[in-house]
Simulated assay, not measured.
Amino acid sequence: MFKCMALLRKRADISKEQFIAYYENNHSVLIRKLLPGIIDYRSNFIDMDGAFLFPDASPIDFDVITEIWLEDRAAYDRFIAASSDPDIARQIAEDEEHLFERGASRMVVVEERQWTKPAGRSQ
């Protein structure tokens, strides 16, 4: 599996509830419809209540972390190529105007690793 993650900031003039509702009911549906090869798509909405930040840490400047899984790097390359198609790019940009501060968007490729047992335990 191949994974990328997007860190996205909501528009300042919409509430968290409006943001989540539009994201879940419109944006994620559009992305999964337009872009090929998505195996899994998850949205992790930031909740700062109870967050822990070190005193010198940079401020959290995003509202959702989106995880997108594809089959492999070739599938990711097709996904990126499709997002560059002028018609698809236009549809995505028009939709993003409803909820994101687009200039703050970031997407990275990640190597996910999972630890199945707690550290320090032998069983």
Rank of each mutant, 00 (worst) to 15 (best):
F2D: 02
F2Y: 10
C4F: 01
M5I: 02
A6E: 05
R11P: 02
R11N: 05
D13R: 06
I14C: 11
S15I: 03
S15K: 03
K16Y: 06
F19Q: 04
I20N: 05
Y22W: 08
Y22H: 15
E24K: 10
E24Q: 13
E24T: 01
N26W: 03
L35S: 06
I38S: 09
I39C: 12
S43E: 03
N44P: 01
D47L: 10
D49R: 07
F52R: 11
F54M: 04
F54Y: 03
P55W: 05
S58W: 00
P59S: 09
I60R: 00
D61V: 10
F62G: 01
E67F: 03
I68T: 11
W69M: 13
D72S: 04
R78A: 14
R78K: 09
R78E: 08
A81E: 04
A81Y: 03
A81N: 04
A81T: 04
P86S: 08
I88M: 07
A89D: 09
I92A: 10
I92Y: 05
E94K: 00
D95G: 07
E96D: 10
E96P: 00
R102K: 14
R106G: 11
M107D: 09
V109T: 09
E111L: 11
R113N: 07
W115S: 14
W115G: 11
W115P: 00
W115K: 01
K117A: 15
A119C: 08
S122P: 00
